Computed example of a mutant assay.
Amino acid sequence: MTSVLEPTLGLLHDEAGRVDEELLPCRVNNPELWFAESPADVESAKALCQDCPVQGLCLDGALARREPWGVWGGELFLQGVVIPRKRPRGRPRKNEAA
C-alpha cells in the first residue's frame, strides 16, 4: 500500500489538479522543453520550474523514482542523478574559454 507521504506520480498529479493550470509551467508550455536536447532549452525549463507551486513534490518524486532523464522540479536528471547542466552534443572545443 502506498503512503500518502510517498512522492508518487499519482500524488503529484493530484496536487497539480488542485492548482490553477496556468501556474504549472509544464502544462502550459511545450512538454518537450523538459526533455530537450538543447542546453539552452533545458535551462529555460529549469527556470520555468522555479515558481511552480508543486516544484518540491515534483523534485522529491523524481529523486525517489530515480528519473532516467529530463527536468523535474527545476533540476536536470540523467540516469537517475541530478546533474548541474546539459552538455551540448559533440566534442568540446580545444580552446574553451575559462
Rank of each mutant, 00 (worst) to 15 (best):
M1Y: 10
T2N: 05
S3H: 08
S3I: 00
S3E: 04
V4W: 08
L5D: 15
E6W: 10
L9H: 05
L11T: 12
A16E: 10
R18W: 01
E21G: 08
L24E: 02
C26N: 11
C26Y: 10
C26E: 11
R27L: 11
R27C: 07
V28S: 03
V28H: 00
N29L: 06
N29T: 07
N29W: 04
E32M: 09
E32C: 06
A36R: 02
S38Q: 13
A40E: 07
A45E: 07
A45S: 08
K46F: 09
L48Q: 12
C49V: 00
C49S: 01
C49I: 06
Q55Y: 12
L59V: 02
D60P: 03
G61V: 05
G61F: 11
L63N: 09
R65M: 15
R65T: 11
R66S: 14
E67M: 10
W69M: 15
V71T: 05
V71P: 03
V71E: 00
G73D: 03
G73H: 01
L76P: 00
F77G: 02
L78M: 13
L78C: 09
L78K: 07
V81N: 09
V81P: 06
V82H: 01
P84Y: 04
R85W: 14
R87H: 04
R91T: 15
R93Q: 14
E96I: 00
A98D: 10
